[in-house]
Lab assay of single mutants.
Amino acid sequence: TTVHVNGVTYHFPNPEEAKKFVDRVVKEAGLTVEVKGNQWDVE
């Protein structure tokens, strides 16, 4: 699973890890998340 955060790419072994990361980032920074298949874009 690939997560893009403001142009930076993070790779995770599974969607659960990616979701935990995204949830944390979104809570801390108040960002928006767009999910496209296995790819997350966070802005």
Score class of each variant (00 low, 15 high):
residue 10 Y to T: 03
residue 41 D to V: 15
residue 36 K to V: 13
residue 7 G to Y: 01
residue 38 N to S: 07
residue 7 G to W: 01
residue 27 K to G: 08
residue 30 G to R: 06
residue 33 V to I: 12
residue 20 K to W: 03
residue 42 V to E: 12
residue 15 P to M: 14
residue 7 G to T: 01
residue 31 L to T: 10
residue 11 H to I: 07
residue 35 V to A: 09
residue 24 R to N: 10
residue 33 V to N: 08
residue 24 R to F: 13
residue 23 D to L: 03
residue 25 V to P: 01
residue 18 A to Q: 01
residue 2 T to R: 04
residue 42 V to S: 11
residue 3 V to N: 00
residue 16 E to A: 09
residue 27 K to F: 08
residue 22 V to Y: 14
residue 12 F to P: 02
residue 35 V to H: 08
residue 41 D to W: 15
residue 37 G to V: 12
residue 26 V to Q: 10
residue 31 L to R: 08
residue 27 K to E: 05
residue 5 V to N: 01
residue 25 V to C: 15
residue 20 K to H: 07
residue 30 G to T: 07
residue 40 W to V: 12
residue 1 T to K: 03
residue 19 K to D: 03
residue 23 D to F: 01
residue 31 L to A: 13
residue 17 E to C: 09
residue 11 H to E: 06
residue 20 K to N: 10
residue 34 E to W: 00
residue 39 Q to Y: 14
residue 27 K to M: 10
residue 2 T to S: 09
residue 28 E to D: 09
residue 27 K to H: 08
residue 35 V to G: 07
residue 29 A to M: 14
residue 32 T to I: 12
residue 6 N to F: 08
residue 36 K to R: 13
residue 9 T to G: 03
residue 6 N to L: 07
residue 14 N to V: 01
residue 9 T to S: 10
residue 13 P to W: 06
residue 31 L to H: 09
residue 11 H to C: 15
residue 28 E to G: 09
residue 38 N to E: 12
residue 5 V to A: 02
residue 27 K to P: 03
residue 4 H to Q: 12
residue 22 V to W: 13
residue 32 T to M: 10
residue 8 V to N: 05
residue 19 K to Q: 13
residue 16 E to Q: 07
residue 18 A to D: 01
residue 13 P to A: 13
residue 25 V to Q: 04
residue 34 E to F: 01
residue 34 E to V: 15
residue 19 K to C: 13
residue 7 G to N: 03
residue 27 K to Q: 08
residue 43 E to Y: 10
residue 2 T to D: 04
residue 37 G to W: 09
residue 19 K to V: 04
residue 10 Y to R: 04
residue 31 L to C: 15
residue 15 P to L: 13
residue 43 E to T: 13
residue 34 E to K: 14
residue 16 E to G: 04
residue 15 P to T: 09
residue 29 A to S: 11
residue 27 K to V: 06
residue 28 E to S: 10
residue 43 E to V: 15
residue 15 P to S: 11
residue 12 F to H: 00
residue 40 W to D: 10
residue 4 H to M: 14
residue 8 V to W: 05
residue 42 V to H: 10
residue 38 N to V: 04
residue 23 D to Y: 02
residue 30 G to Y: 06
residue 33 V to Y: 04
residue 13 P to D: 14
residue 5 V to T: 02
residue 22 V to H: 05
residue 20 K to P: 00
residue 25 V to A: 06
residue 36 K to Y: 04
residue 24 R to H: 09
residue 34 E to C: 15
residue 12 F to R: 00
residue 23 D to T: 03
residue 31 L to W: 13
residue 30 G to W: 08
residue 29 A to W: 08
residue 2 T to H: 11
residue 30 G to N: 08
residue 11 H to Q: 04
residue 15 P to F: 14
residue 43 E to R: 05
residue 35 V to C: 15
residue 2 T to C: 15
residue 15 P to D: 13
residue 12 F to K: 00
residue 35 V to D: 06
residue 31 L to M: 12
residue 5 V to D: 00
residue 21 F to I: 01
residue 25 V to L: 15
residue 11 H to D: 04
residue 37 G to A: 05
residue 19 K to E: 07
residue 35 V to E: 07
residue 17 E to A: 09
residue 9 T to F: 08
residue 18 A to V: 01
residue 4 H to V: 15
residue 34 E to A: 11
residue 17 E to L: 06
residue 35 V to Y: 06
residue 38 N to L: 08
residue 39 Q to L: 11
residue 24 R to Y: 11
residue 13 P to F: 05
residue 30 G to Q: 09
residue 6 N to T: 01
residue 42 V to F: 06
residue 10 Y to F: 06
residue 33 V to W: 04
residue 19 K to M: 10
residue 27 K to Y: 06
residue 17 E to D: 09
residue 8 V to M: 07
residue 13 P to H: 09
residue 43 E to Q: 11
residue 15 P to A: 14
residue 39 Q to F: 13
residue 41 D to S: 04
residue 39 Q to M: 11
residue 38 N to D: 13
residue 42 V to L: 05
residue 34 E to R: 13
residue 35 V to M: 08
residue 31 L to D: 06
residue 33 V to D: 06
residue 28 E to V: 10
residue 32 T to H: 11
residue 10 Y to N: 03
residue 16 E to F: 05
residue 17 E to W: 02
residue 33 V to L: 09
residue 19 K to Y: 05
residue 41 D to P: 13
residue 42 V to I: 09
residue 25 V to G: 02
residue 20 K to V: 06
residue 1 T to P: 03
residue 14 N to P: 00
residue 27 K to S: 07
residue 37 G to Q: 08
residue 13 P to V: 07
residue 7 G to M: 01
residue 7 G to L: 01
residue 20 K to M: 05
residue 13 P to L: 12
residue 30 G to M: 08
residue 34 E to T: 15
residue 1 T to E: 02
residue 7 G to K: 02
residue 35 V to Q: 08
residue 15 P to E: 15
residue 11 H to P: 03
residue 43 E to H: 10
residue 23 D to E: 12
residue 20 K to D: 08
residue 24 R to Q: 13
residue 37 G to R: 04
residue 14 N to Y: 02
residue 12 F to E: 02
residue 42 V to K: 09
residue 36 K to P: 10
residue 22 V to M: 11
residue 1 T to C: 15
residue 2 T to W: 11
residue 31 L to P: 06
residue 40 W to I: 14
residue 5 V to M: 10
residue 4 H to R: 14
residue 21 F to Q: 00
residue 5 V to E: 01
residue 27 K to A: 09
residue 20 K to G: 03
residue 43 E to S: 12
residue 23 D to G: 02
residue 10 Y to V: 07
residue 1 T to A: 07
residue 1 T to G: 02
residue 7 G to A: 01
residue 30 G to S: 07
residue 39 Q to W: 15
residue 10 Y to K: 04
residue 38 N to H: 06
residue 14 N to A: 02
residue 8 V to K: 14
residue 29 A to R: 11
residue 8 V to F: 07
residue 43 E to K: 10
residue 40 W to H: 11
residue 1 T to V: 15
residue 5 V to F: 14
residue 19 K to P: 01
residue 43 E to I: 15
residue 12 F to L: 00
residue 35 V to I: 13
residue 43 E to C: 15
residue 41 D to L: 14
residue 8 V to H: 10
residue 1 T to L: 10
residue 28 E to Y: 05
residue 40 W to K: 11
residue 2 T to P: 01
residue 32 T to R: 10
residue 42 V to R: 05
residue 17 E to G: 02
residue 28 E to M: 10
residue 39 Q to E: 12
residue 18 A to T: 01
residue 10 Y to L: 06
residue 36 K to F: 10
residue 34 E to N: 13
residue 16 E to M: 06
residue 31 L to Y: 11
residue 37 G to P: 08
residue 41 D to F: 15
residue 8 V to I: 11
residue 10 Y to E: 03
residue 38 N to Q: 05
residue 6 N to D: 06
residue 32 T to L: 12
residue 29 A to K: 11
residue 8 V to L: 06
residue 22 V to A: 05
residue 9 T to M: 09
residue 40 W to A: 11
residue 5 V to I: 14
residue 38 N to G: 11
